[in-house]
């Protein structure tokens, strides 16, 4: 049995791992098999993480966080959690491989998942012109007219990035003002290849084998129109990834994991939550990292309150049990 398991490997997960490792808790980080490093793995320049005046590439930042956690003894497993049993003093974490691990404390830092438009043709045309990852797929839209849906920082970043490839990038936004930070807005406004389509909602995606356009509905007048496109990038936000803890931990009305006050304590003793999965508002790499710190410190405090005999069981290196 372990003292602590951290689920997630974004800024929250790795920062929690750095703190827990430095507290000699030898954390096990379940990093995910294909999404290790989290959302920043699909971004390019990160310009707002303190300490990097020239900016840093998202994947590089995450690699450094991982190295920092491993330097102090964190162990990283590239697998996905398929089941969590959180009740009681000993928590069980079961992985996709069939392995299960026990721990006295668990930090849930599972982040958030891309929100979908929820349109009938979205799934069918996904990978055929509908994309959620500009850095992965922008390359395939050289000299094409494409659109980004959304009005936040990620939409601006994607739109600006996509102008490297596309001949024209529309930004389709439901309102007439952006939620994005001023610097990202100004960069997009100054870009000749970017044109804004304000007060517009995508009501349909068209195309037989590949996207050839979208249907738009004006959110003010209700008027319908169409726009011919070679591709559509969706950046309308994220939803907290809570499926593993449904019916085990209380959630907020926003759908994030409920925590007590400014702490990371969930409704189950020994279970802590950090990062985007608890944050409906800020959702920055820095705030996620800070919240990972809070979770590690809360977990450390919790562990010291446990009976010695339980802690003794968690002090020896465990062997994973396979229950396939």
């Amino acid at each position: 049995m372990r003292q602590i398991i951290i689920i997630g490997s974004g800024p929250a997960g790795y920062t929690a791992a750095i703190y827990a490792a430095r507290a000699n808790l030898r954390p096990l980080v379940i990093a995910s098999s294909v999404e290790a490093g989290g959302e920043l793995m699909n971004t390019t320049d990160v310009e707002n993480f303190p300490g990097f005046p020239e900016g840093i590439q998202g994947p590089e930042l995450m690699m450094k966080m991982q190295e920092q956690a491993e330097r102090f003894g964190a162990e990283v497993v590239y697998d996905d959690v398929v089941r969590l049993e959180l009740e009681g003093a000993v928590k069980t974490v079961t992985l996709g491989s069939g392995e299960s691990h026990e721990a006295l404390a668990v930090i849930v830092a599972t982040g958030s998942a891309y929100r979908k438009l929820g349109l009938a043709d979205e799934e069918r045309l996904s990978g055929h012109g509908v994309s959620w990852c500009a850095t992965c797929d922008g390359f395939f839209f050289k000299n094409k007219t494409i659109a980004v849906v959304g009005g936040g920082d990620s939409a601006m970043e994607e739109a600006t990035f996509l102008t490297r490839f596309a001949s024209k990038v529309y930004v389709i936004h439901r309102k007439d003002t952006l939620r994005a930070s001023k610097i990202m807005q100004e960069r997009a406004f100054a870009n000749d290849k970017i044109e804004f389509v304000w007060n517009a909602e995508v009501s349909g995606i068209t195309g037989d084998d590949a996207v050839d356009g979208v249907r738009l509905r004006n959110t003010v007048s209700g008027d319908q129109s169409t726009l011919e496109l070679g591709g559509l990038f969706v950046a309308i936000g994220n939803d907290p990834r809570t499926h593993l803890v449904h019916k085990q931990l209380a959630l907020t009305p926003e759908g994030t994991i409920a925590v007590q006050g400014r702490s990371s304590r969930t409704t189950v003793a020994g279970v802590f939550a950090a990062g985007d999965v608890v944050d409906p508002t800020y959702r920055q790499a820095v705030t996620a990292a800070a919240s990972g710190t809070v979770a590690a410190l809360d977990a450390e405090h919790y562990l010291t309150s446990l009976p010695q005999d339980l802690l003794a069981q968690a002090s020896e290196p465990e062997l994973a049990t396979v229950t396939e």
């Binding site: 098999s33 697998d79 996709g96 990978g127 055929h128 012109g129 990852c133 797929d137 395939f140 084998d209």
Partner: peptide, 28 residues
């Protein structure tokens, strides 16, 4: 092969595409 999103995994039998999987997924 009209790739617009990667990773794209296409299964070929006798020279024809019989299955396409798009996006990274866990092993199971």
């Amino acid at each position: 092969y009209q790739i617009t999103s990667i990773p794209a995994m296409k299964v070929f039998q006798k020279g024809e595409v019989v299955k396409t999987v798009i996006g990274a997924k866990p092993k199971p």
